[in-house]
Each structure stands twice: as structure tokens, then as C-alpha cells.
Design a protein around this nucleic acid. Structure first.
Lengths: 336, 336
DNA sequence: CTGAAAGCGCTTACAG
DNA sequence: CTGAAAGCGCTTACAG
């Protein structure tokens, strides 16, 4: 590992074999058992560490895989979805003997993204949080190596992906609200730039369908970032313009926490006066007051599936499947 | 970027010059203005992206810098200190044209650490959260490249570092408690494995000195992880064994949040009956009830200094200085 | 099973 | 300023 250190040439000499034999003995090539031990002992004795740059130059493989996140570092570490899925991905890639490289970049810095991605030397990539822009789409395309999305990619980007069943999640949220007798329901959405401009958010669509089944329509649909602040501001807006509101479907627990916070400030009792449903089932869902009824998504399964897909693609040269959708389920607490 | 793609040879041919001239024109070498434009145009036209593996093989430099964190991914993303310092480091390294590689590894997996570090191809490293073990110390030593610590390294590891003034921070905490008339003060420490076994925690030492100046000693000193749970359990222990307790110094805001939580459960009023001081001044300090009086440390300055030190070492071949200590300050809220 | 040779894509003395 | 050549440390056909 130290600069100017021992090379395979030294190992070969020490073991009394040629360089090519040493290389084979160390790797998977053919070599007699005797030679193999001799060479491996030499390598150990000399603390030989192969030069990854040279290996990569020959084989074209780095065993590095990029995890792409278009968020500011601050947000990434505060956001439970991203940090959690990222940590799961790092775990499963490491288990698969791949080396995760975090490509963390602000949503407006496509050039920095290209540089970082290139310098990661990655063989493949998983996109965790993608805020759409043409430049970013172009960089991913030019990357030209196997790439899988966590979350459905924008319509014009045809990449394999894993996703929780968003439609079903939205439907469950709508159903639990209407079943409770709520009739004036507002939807506080996540950001709109994570899918194509003309595409509707699946969580919203699912919810709208459930409302429709009960003869209803949402009284408001307000997009924004996955933050508590967005929840607070959106709930404020709804309360002001639609004081009759009696139900909220928030697209994340964090947003729901903001909604609860505002309702509490305005002395609207949850769940007596108003019901609130979240999405994610993260830790915060159990900590807010009242504890939040929410839709749980299986993050670990998403991460594992993404890893498996990418590994298969890297090893067998083709995707085992193009997409995998995971069921979600309702976690009932006290906010409905 | 695509496999089997354009090389400098293609660029040279397209520009009508030799490979060596192309290389010089693209890099910092000598070349006529005319040649330089010609080559750069060719590179752009062909979408040339230099092969970093080849560059590294020649120059011995990758421009990658490792950020080492011996924690489980889960903890890292939940811990405000680590995630915050990491995100600041990533920012400042990126600004310095270096590529941060997160080496995130469980505290017991020294072998995995060695592999990850090696595969990062890093030119240097900054150690953010170091839980001591001989194996880890050995891996860092064998890494053999410039390494700087955030936080004072264990005594037997002589690496340059940046650190907030821990001693002064502890002293401030002690002083604000004694000034408030508290006389039965417990210290809830962070982990003990982050410094050498026979070494005392500097935050504790500072606090003990302040108590000593007031003719006091701590009634208890309880180490543990930087978590809310540790705060809860330790406060419970103190309350049980030393019911006379009237002051807590928690080594992190997170621990303090746990202490506050437990005191609330046991109907001990803060700050009327008991005072609590934290450390960090993270967001949680303003959110708990009552808002927490705490010691603020300048994370961004720590990160920037670490980056500067490492950059200087990488470019000029020597450390500009071996350590840099940053002042901390007391942030008074309502818990004392 | 083993060794000599070619070559991955660059950079950098060395001559001119 | 420019080109031909050497070489970074490996791996992998190719012969034997």
C-alpha cells in the first residue's frame, strides 16, 4: 500500500517463478498447488498489495459501484429515506465484494456530478435520489455503464428500477381516511421534479382513486420537499383556504410531522377533529404525538434487490429483470 | 467514459499531433497556443475522457481522499456530529478538487476496512470517528499516506489533528453548573474507546477542574455511546443511586436529550430542580424541552482546517502544522 | 503447469 | 515547441 512498494515482480522473484505465474497463482489462473502456496507465502511475507490502478487498466473493472444522490449533503444526512437506503446499499454492496462510492451532489451541479462520477471509476451505479434535469439525464446516459434506479425513473429515462408499490400505498392512505368518515381530504405531496413534468405522482394517483371510490376528490394537492417545514407551511395553507379540512395524506412521515405540529398549534385535535396519514414508517412516526398512522415500505428489500440486479448485470452481462415492485402495508397508530 | 472508448491516441490523430504533444496540450505541459486549441478542440469533439486508472498508474496520484468512519452505517447517519462533519468535509474536499471516498466500516471489521481503504485508491485520509483497536491502528499505519484526525487521536498514534478545545468546553459546562449553585453533579460521558484506555476524557477533565475550583467533585461519571438511550439509562442510574443529584453534564446534546426525557418522566423539573448542560449545539438542542444550554463547537472550521492541512500535505509534501485547536463557546438556553 | 511477450492508456524525461 | 521511446504494474493469450 505504501508508495514505491513491493510489486508482483518482487513476489515472483521471491517465490522463484515468473511474473505471469505469480499473477496466475494469486488470481484464479491455473497453477500447481505447490506453486500456489509458494507464491502466496511470498506475497504474505512481502506484504504484497496489488496495484488497483494497474489491474483496472488491464481488466477494465474497478469493482467500485457508485451510489448517486442528487441532494445537498446536509439534506441527505437529515433525510431518513435517503440516509437509510444509502446505508443499506453500502452494506449489501460490501457483502457482494463491491466498493460503494457515494456520489453526493447538489441538484444543480451536473458538471460536478460528471467529474465525481468519472473519478469514482465505477463499473456501475445505483441512483437513489434523482431530481430530474436534462443535464443530469445526459451525464447518466454518457456514463454508459449499468445503472439501476431506486424509485421509478422519469418516463423518458428507460432504466431498470426497484420501487415500493406507490399506487397501492396511496390507495391505502385514501382508504383509511374515507373509512374513518373523512370527506375533506388534502394531499401534501413530495417534490415534483423527481418524475417527468407531465407525469402524475403515483402516491397521489392511488389516493385520488380511493377517494373517487368514496365519491370524493381531494380538496387540495400541495407539492414540496420532503421536509417538516413543507408540512407546516402546506397545512397552514390548507387550514386557511379550506377550514373544513378533516384529513391529510402526507407523502412522508417528515411532512406529516410538520402537519401534526401545525394542527397542534392551531388547537385542531388529532385524531378527533382531523386525521393524518404519513408515508415511510420511519422512527419519527412513533415519536410524534399522536403516534402516526402511516404506510410502511420495505427499504432493506429495495436495497437488496437493487444490489442483486446490479451484481447480476455486472457478472452475467444482462439484467435479470427490468423492475421489481414491493408491497407496502398500513401501520395503524393513533393519528386516524 | 464508455468502455472501449476514445483514447488520447484518437485525440492526437484527430489533431494531427503526436500522443506526447496531445498529453502536454491537455495537461499543464508546454505547447504552443495553436497546438493547445487544436488538441482541446479534438478532445471536445471526440468526447475524450482520460482514463484515470492509466493516469494513476503513471503519476501515483488518484486525487481521491478517504473519509474514514468506524461506525455502523446506521449510526453514522443518525449521529449529528458524524454526519455533519462528514458532509462538511465532502464539501470542502470537492471544492479543493479532491474526490471524497466514504470509508464507512463497523468498529470490529478491520479487515474490511483495509480492503475498502485499499480499493478507494486514496492519496490521503481524514479520520472522523475512530474507535480504537490495535488492528485499526495497524491498518492506518500500513496505509502509509498522509492522514489527519478530526479529534485528538489516541496517545500512541501520532497523527496530526484538529480538535475543538475539549478541556475548555468541559470547564465551561462545569462553571455554568456551579455558578447556578449546583453541588451534586453527574457527568454522562461519551464512549471510552475513542481515546487510549489509560487516558482521561478531556471534556470530563475540564469539568472536574471547574468543579474542583468550587470545592466539588462529580458524584458520578458514566461513559457510554453518544445516544439518547445512553442518556436515559445513565440518568436513571444516577437518580437511583444519587437522588440528591442537581446537575448533569452530558457529553453530547443527544445524550442530554435522553437525560431530559428521563427527568421529565420522573417529574424532576428542569431547570428548577435540576440543571442540564449538553455539548455540540446541534439542532436537537433547540427542539428539546426545555431548550438545552450547551457548548457549541465550530464543525465547519474543523472540517475546513482538516481539508486544508491534508491538501497542503499532499501538495507541498509536509504538514503546515501538526494540530489546530478551535475555541468553543457556551450557548445559554433554558436548561440551567 | 509455466515463461516470454504484448499491451492496457497514459505521462515524462530525452533528444532534436 | 515537438516526437519517439520508455515505462508505470499488472493480466492474458500464446507457445511450449
Amino acid at each position: 500500500m505504501v508508495r514505491g512498494s513491493v510489486t508482483i515482480r518482487d513476489v515472483a522473484r521471491h517465490a522463484g517463478v515468473s511474473i505471469s505465474t505469480a499473477s496466475r497463482a494469486l488470481g484464479g489462473g491455473s497453477a500447481s498447488a505447490k506453486t500456489r502456496t509458494k507464491v502466496q507465502q511470498a506475497a504474505t511475507a512481502l506484504h504484497f498489495v496489488p496495484n488497483t490502478a494497474a489491474q483496472q487498466l488491464i481488466t477494465g473493472r474497478s469493482n467500485v459501484v457508485a451510489i448517486m444522490i442528487t441532494e445537498t449533503p446536509d439534506f441527505m444526512f437529515q433525510d431518513a429515506f435517503i440516509s437509510s437506503i444509502t446505508s443499506q446499499l453500502m452494506n449489501s454492496f460490501t457483502k457482494a465484494n463491491l466498493f460503494p462510492f457515494l456520489v453526493l451532489i447538489a441538484p444543480n451541479d451536473a458538471e460536478g456530478f460528471a467529474r465525481l462520477l468519472h473519478n469514482s471509476r465505477a463499473d456501475g451505479m445505483v441512483v437513489v435520489s434523482f431530481h430530474y434535469s436534462e443535464q443530469f439525464a445526459t451525464v447518466i446516459e454518457q456514463f454508459g455503464r449499468p445503472t439501476v434506479f431506486v424509485g421509478k425513473p422519469p418516463l423518458d429515462m428507460d432504466y431498470p428500477y426497484v420501487d415500493p408499490d406507490q399506487l397501492q400505498g396511496g390507495r391505502m392512505a385514501g382508504q383509511v381516511l374515507t373509512a374513518r368518515g373523512r370527506r375533506h381530504i388534502a394531499i401534501i405531496e413530495g417534490p415534483t421534479d423527481m418524475h417527468s413534468p407531465n407525469e402524475r405522482n403515483d402516491r397521489t394517483t392511488g389516493c385520488v382513486r380511493a377517494l373517487h371510490d368514496a365519491g370524493l376528490s381531494p380538496i387540495a394537492t400541495i407539492p414540496g420537499p420532503y421536509t417538516m417545514r413543507h408540512g407546516i407551511e402546506a397545512a397552514h395553507e390548507v387550514l386557511t383556504e379550506h377550514p373544513e379540512v378533516d384529513g391529510f395524506f402526507a407523502h412522508s412521515d417528515q411532512i406529516a410531522a410538520g402537519v401534526l405540529h401545525l394542527l397542534h398549534q392551531h388547537d385542531r385535535h388529532v385524531p378527533r377533529d382531523i386525521s393524518v396519514v404519513g408515508f415511510d414508517n420511519f422512527q419519527v412516526a412513533g415519536l410524534v404525538s399522536p403516534p402516526l398512522t402511516t404506510i410502511a415500505q420495505p427499504l432493506n428489500q429495495l436495497a437488496e434487490a437493487a444490489t442483486e440486479m446490479l451484481c447480476a448485470r455486472l457478472e452475467q452481462g444482462q439484467w435479470p429483470y427490468r423492475r421489481k415492485i414491493f408491497p407496502v402495508h398500513l401501520v395503524e397508530r393513533d393519528s386516524v
